[in-house]
Simulated scan of single mutants.
Amino acid sequence: MKLSTRTRTLPIGVALAGTLALSACGAANEQGGTAGGGAGGGGEVSGTLVGAGASSQEAAMQGWRAGYTEVQPGVTVNYDPVGSGGGREQFLAGGTDFAGSDAPLDEEELAQAEERCGSAGVFELPNYISPIAVAYNLQGVDALNLSPVTLAGIFAQQITSWNDPAIAADNPDVQLPDLPITPVNRSDESGTTENFAEYLATVAPDVWTYEVSGDWPVPGGEAAQGTSGVVSAIGAGEGTIGYADLSQVEGLGVASVGVGPEFVAPTAEAAAAVVENSETLEGRGEYDFAIELARDTAESGNYPIVLISYHIGCIEYADQETATLVQDFMGYVVSADGQEAAAEAAGSAPISDTLRGQAQRAIDAITAAAG
């Protein structure tokens, strides 16, 4: 299954908020050598980076800040969790130095990226891996299994009651209430939505017949802004169900989903397993490591509703200061220390050595335009 080309109409966020004061574990080589952030290099760097994008990275950013501020107090990174679509658009328009995105650039955006970054192209680094949890609020139901077809039927609003025979078949030992189901979705364009919809379209194409995009396609239900808005809406209701990054759903019920003959709960380990069984998208740039996820896996212990959040930036920046800062910051993010900091803060799955090696190759190539 190849990722489809997506067409988006996105609002441009103009305010950059949520400032994070971040610092690196070492300086980047100014001509594109080994990145700092604990991965080598020497000397201090200072300045300000501006990023925007996926709200799913918020918790990880807190972890990166905690591990990163100790050695480079002169570096500040402003990151606005405006959402993946807004982050990509701001970056492509030249308003930020990098973007966080829960979906890779599509073909139209790749063309815009060449205008922004020049012929050297962009990097897309899968630096944050986490399960998308199917979270619910249903009194008296502490454990819930949902097969792919049942899950698609719920969010397509074809299954509208919690004691529907399809849900009961997945949960023969659970007393399900006669209560309406209230599905909760993102109101804003979202990479989390796109990942979730892509899973539904792959595993239940006869039920989920909508075009995959970052915009929720089903009318009705309840819509909320951002990850925090969805989580709040689920928690405030009864009989609600929605989707959000696992790190954000504390206190809610979390469903296990059908994978082959078993039901698998979302964990960092299960998310990492499905990524390891997936391949890099073909036909992209030398430093573009967007992944084609094996959504329809039947492998034991794999959780296929996975969110991969990317950091997207230029291989060649207009000035050396920005190139050095991006290189140094990304070097820390992909380092073992940086990934451990994110895992502790967000429950994410640390990237593999293979992904780290790929990312470091891109980071080493970051440089400034001549002249």
Score class of each variant (00 low, 15 high):
4 S>H: 09
6 R>T: 13
11 P>W: 07
14 V>A: 14
14 V>F: 14
14 V>D: 14
14 V>H: 15
20 L>I: 15
22 L>R: 00
23 S>T: 13
28 A>C: 08
33 G>Y: 11
34 T>I: 14
35 A>N: 02
35 A>P: 15
37 G>Y: 01
38 G>R: 06
39 A>W: 09
41 G>A: 06
46 S>V: 05
46 S>I: 00
51 G>I: 07
52 A>T: 03
52 A>Q: 15
55 S>L: 09
61 M>K: 07
63 G>Q: 05
69 T>S: 11
71 V>R: 14
75 V>C: 15
76 T>P: 09
78 N>W: 09
82 V>F: 13
84 S>K: 05
87 G>A: 08
88 R>Y: 03
93 A>R: 15
100 G>W: 11
105 L>V: 03
108 E>R: 05
114 E>S: 06
115 E>I: 05
119 S>D: 03
120 A>K: 11
125 L>S: 00
128 Y>H: 11
130 S>R: 03
138 L>V: 14
142 D>S: 15
147 S>G: 10
149 V>G: 01
159 I>C: 07
166 A>M: 11
169 A>V: 00
172 P>K: 07
174 V>G: 08
174 V>W: 03
174 V>L: 04
176 L>G: 12
177 P>E: 01
181 I>R: 01
181 I>V: 08
181 I>M: 06
183 P>N: 07
186 R>E: 10
187 S>A: 07
189 E>C: 15
190 S>I: 07
190 S>C: 09
192 T>I: 12
196 F>E: 02
197 A>P: 00
200 L>Q: 01
201 A>V: 00
204 A>H: 06
205 P>E: 03
205 P>R: 09
207 V>A: 01
214 G>Y: 12
217 P>I: 10
224 A>K: 04
229 G>V: 02
230 V>L: 11
230 V>I: 14
231 V>E: 04
232 S>Y: 11
232 S>A: 15
234 I>L: 09
235 G>A: 09
236 A>L: 12
237 G>H: 04
256 S>H: 07
260 G>H: 11
267 T>Q: 03
267 T>K: 05
268 A>Y: 08
269 E>M: 06
270 A>W: 05
273 A>M: 09
273 A>R: 03
275 V>S: 03
277 N>C: 01
278 S>G: 01
289 F>E: 01
291 I>S: 02
291 I>N: 04
293 L>T: 12
300 S>N: 13
304 P>C: 03
307 L>Y: 05
308 I>D: 02
311 H>P: 00
316 E>K: 06
317 Y>V: 02
318 A>H: 01
320 Q>T: 12
321 E>H: 06
323 A>V: 10
326 V>I: 15
326 V>F: 02
327 Q>T: 01
332 Y>V: 04
333 V>C: 06
338 G>Q: 04
345 A>P: 14
345 A>I: 13
346 A>P: 06
348 S>V: 10
352 S>Q: 08
353 D>Y: 09
354 T>E: 15
361 R>P: 00
362 A>K: 02
364 D>A: 05
366 I>P: 01
